[in-house]
Amino acid sequence: MSDDFKPRILGFLCNWCCYAAADAAGISRYQYPPNLRTIRVMCTGRVDPAFILRGFVEGADGIFTGG
């Protein structure tokens, strides 16, 4: 089980930095695991702690906030 554990991660990405960086990672074809599902926000200031709790309720194994 532990070896096969593929966590489902929910990410909140800031439009100006982290989302842009994720775009740039694509441009340079940087490869990373496909476990992340992202939500774009205009700034991580937008991320209400309630969103994070909600994410866990909805079954996320981890939550990533990038800003």
């Binding site: 994720a22 775009d23 990672a25 694509g26 441009i27 940087y30 990373y32 496909p34 992340l36 992202t38």
Partner: peptide
């Protein structure tokens, strides 16, 4: 964004990329 943040970065895992 299924190009920069999906197909381009998961080139070796087409199934997982499609799921994503």
């Amino acid at each position: 964004n299924i190009r920069n943040q999906c197909s381009w970065v998961h080139a070796a895992e087409p199934e997982a990329a499609t799921d994503k």
